[in-house]
Amino acid sequence: MNKKCLTILLIALLLLPNALFSKDVLVREEGKLCIYFLDLDVDATAEDKSGDSTIIISPEGKVMLIDCGHPQSGHQVIDALKALAVDHIDIFVASHPHIDHIGSFAQIAAAFPIGQVYRSALEYPTSQYASFVSAIVDRQLPVTILSEGDRFSFGDKVSVRVFNPGDPITYPANYPANSTQFVNNQSVALKLTYGSSSAWFGGDLYMVQERALVTKYGPELQSDVAKANHHGGDTSNTLTWIKAIKAKIVVAMNDGLDSMTVCNNYKKYGAEYHLTQLDGTVRVVMDDKQNYTVTDTKDSWMN
């Protein structure tokens, strides 16, 4: 066997496990609430991580997109939406204006009609935020500013309650210099409720804001499914938070495992812990009676 053939054979063998064990999770399940935590990636030139993007399809087929990742990841979000036969987005939620959460919005808005944009009042003087605002203005998309205490409906069967940010937003001196934690703590934080089932999306909340929410709301935060705050990092996801939210299924969207301690703590308190970098895109399907089915694109040691 010549060297070229041997190289091809070795590459094929390396790819074989993924081919054998990869699952197609980008399929709908009618009459259920389906959540797709997308596995995104960026190349080595990217100035930030790939970020968060979650597709949610209501029992009657409405589509919500929470965040849309880094600009380099936009095509992956679009491909996932098309794989799910999405032809329009009913609701887009921008959790906060960092590049890894709203970076590809202009691409998404060009590819799909969007019925409603929800965002916070936070202003952020960056080129990516300017692109986000321009896409909204250019396409005349309706916008609603969300803050603590607001509620809205996602179809006829799913209600959404907003826990963060507060109103008004008070900017620190010298903003936006050294503002990463401040901006993350202004994340739009949502709890979706479908019958007795629930799901939490808290953007990039840091531990200070987690603590404030636990102090104020306590058991009202409890959610069966949760996106790990701030990509599963130890800037967030304290034991106090983990005990309060009491999640059964937790998904961290990240290009790597930021904190083994966070992973272990969620597991210690009864949660399955999924990481998109290892598990691929994660689909959670739920009915309205706290019955859940979780499917990872790839098998990993995480679960």
Rank of each mutant, 00 (worst) to 15 (best):
L10W: 00
L205K: 10
N254Q: 01
A226D: 05
G256D: 00
V262I: 05
L275A: 12
G218V: 03
L81D: 03
I11K: 02
M302D: 12
F163Q: 04
Y266K: 00
L141S: 11
F182P: 00
V137A: 07
I57R: 02
T126N: 08
I249Y: 15
K82E: 14
D100P: 01
A247R: 08
I66M: 13
I242T: 03
Y175N: 10
Q209Y: 13
S198C: 09
E47Y: 12
E210P: 03
D138V: 00
L26M: 10
P125E: 15
T7E: 01
I99F: 04
A135K: 09
S104G: 10
G149H: 09
Y124C: 12
A121I: 11
A212Q: 14
L26G: 01
Y171K: 09
H101P: 03
D299I: 15
L33W: 06
D167C: 08
A85T: 06
Q128F: 14
F132E: 10
K216A: 15
V250E: 02
F92E: 07
S53D: 11
K216H: 12
R119V: 10
D87M: 00
I114V: 15
K4I: 06
N2S: 06
L38H: 13
D90N: 12
S50F: 13
F37K: 03
N164G: 02
W200K: 01
W301P: 03
A244K: 00
V262G: 02
A226R: 06
H75L: 11
S53R: 08
Y124W: 15
N184P: 01
F182C: 02
S197W: 07
D24T: 08
G149I: 08
T261M: 11
P168M: 08
G195S: 14
Q76M: 15
G69A: 06
A173G: 00
A212L: 14
R211D: 14
T215M: 12
Y124L: 11
